[in-house]
Simulated assay, not measured.
Amino acid sequence: MTLTYLEHLNGSLPDPGGLLCVALIHNEAALLPEFLRHYRDLGVTSFVIVDDRSDDGTYDLLEAADDVAAFAPVAGSTYAEHKRKWRSELLDKFCAGRWAIVPDIDEHMVFAGMEHGGLPKLVDALDADGCEAAQATMIDMYADGTLGDMNYSNGRLTDAFPLFDAPDCYHRLAAPKRFRRKFPTPFFMVVGGMRQRVFEPVAFDRSKWTHRAFLDFAAIENGFVSTAGDRVKAVALRQLVRSTLADRPLFNLTKIPLVKWRRGMTYYNGAHALSGQLALSKRRLALLHFNFAGGMSAIRYKSARGQHAAGSNFYRRIEDGRPETTALLFDRSLHYVQPQSLGSLIS
């Protein structure tokens, strides 16, 4: 097998007739067993995982799994510079013309009706609808306390971090025009949730008609598939509240984790958008996002490593915001029990 940025370490190459999951990992041995369990339960038959020079026992877990093919970056290839190419190279090689699941290790996909047939039934339904991709919202999961209190070791992640912000705390808005020229799928991006609320709160004010109009249109229950009229309205409403949106950095909670891959496409960074214009499903998926499961030690590590977006600027900002003393629970926190707990965030 000839790849430019990756080399095959071990494990059988994926079953061409099965459902494939492609993921990248670095020092997430604590999260990996739950990740594999969750996606196996959903119907994934093969995993292709890039181990980015882990030194915490991650590779041993990958090697022990019969359904995982492990890859590693070649010398000189880094996550910061080449993560898009890592994903594209594997998806071009193994998934052209077939469905693939592309989550991060700290993301668990959930969707309406998943208990009745899992992912195989979902992709059959997407094929029947003529769809090529499904959009998901990352739902930041947390526990009652501060980031300083969080420190996951084992067990069900939803038991350790059962809380999430209510559906009306998430908003869809038109992705910037310049961005959409290069990455046209999806049109809508999602912002909000715990991360935005705690670290970079956006001050919407329903007493202002412009804010009311934006928030009513921006409700996630309005969906991600848009008409030409929806797109014109979305762009106009974003302009109406542009000064409020520009006041804070916006965390993009949009992912396209389920895609019928076309050779030659690329993802934007962490699977947030695609370079191809794809037929998007009306179904709304969610990714339970356990980004803070490692607590402050993981945040400091990611900040110092500097391999995430903008040199890990997000994690540096968290460090500067006194997270050890900031309570995460608020009056719109809800408790996750099952996918239906997410209400209008999924459909």
Rank of each mutant, 00 (worst) to 15 (best):
P73W: 01
P73N: 04
V74E: 07
V74R: 15
V74K: 15
A75N: 07
G76I: 05
S77A: 15
S77L: 04
S77Q: 13
T78A: 09
Y79I: 05
Y79S: 05
Y79K: 08
Y79R: 11
Y79N: 05
A80W: 09
A80M: 08
E81N: 14
E81M: 10
H82T: 09
H82R: 12
K83P: 02
R84D: 14
R84F: 00
R84T: 14
K85M: 11
K85V: 03
K85S: 11
W86C: 01
W86G: 01
R87G: 00
R87H: 12
S88T: 13
S88M: 01
L90N: 03
L90D: 00
L91P: 08
L91R: 06
D92I: 04
F94H: 03
F94T: 04
A96K: 03
A96M: 00
G97Q: 06
R98C: 03
W99Q: 02
I101G: 04
V102R: 01
V102Y: 02
V102A: 06
P103G: 07
I105T: 09
D106H: 07
D106S: 07
E107I: 04
E107S: 08
E107Q: 11
E107L: 03
H108D: 01
H108Q: 13
H108F: 13
H108N: 09
M109C: 02
M109N: 01
M109F: 03
F111H: 08
F111E: 06
A112M: 09
G113I: 01
M114E: 15
E115C: 02
H116W: 02
G117I: 07
L119K: 06
L119F: 13
L119A: 05
P120T: 06
K121T: 12
K121G: 04
L122R: 09
L122A: 06
L122V: 01
V123P: 08
V123W: 00
D124T: 14
D124V: 10
A125G: 13
A125I: 10
L126P: 06
L126Y: 07
L126N: 07
G130F: 11
C131I: 08
C131H: 14
C131F: 10
E132Q: 14
A134Q: 08
Q135W: 14
Q135N: 09
Q135E: 13
T137Q: 04
M138Q: 15
I139T: 08
I139C: 09
I139N: 10
D140M: 07
M141N: 12
Y142M: 07
A143G: 14
A143D: 10
A143Y: 04
D144F: 03
T146R: 08
T146Y: 07
G148V: 11
G148D: 11
G148E: 12
G148A: 12
D149E: 14
D149C: 10
M150T: 10
M150N: 12
N151A: 15
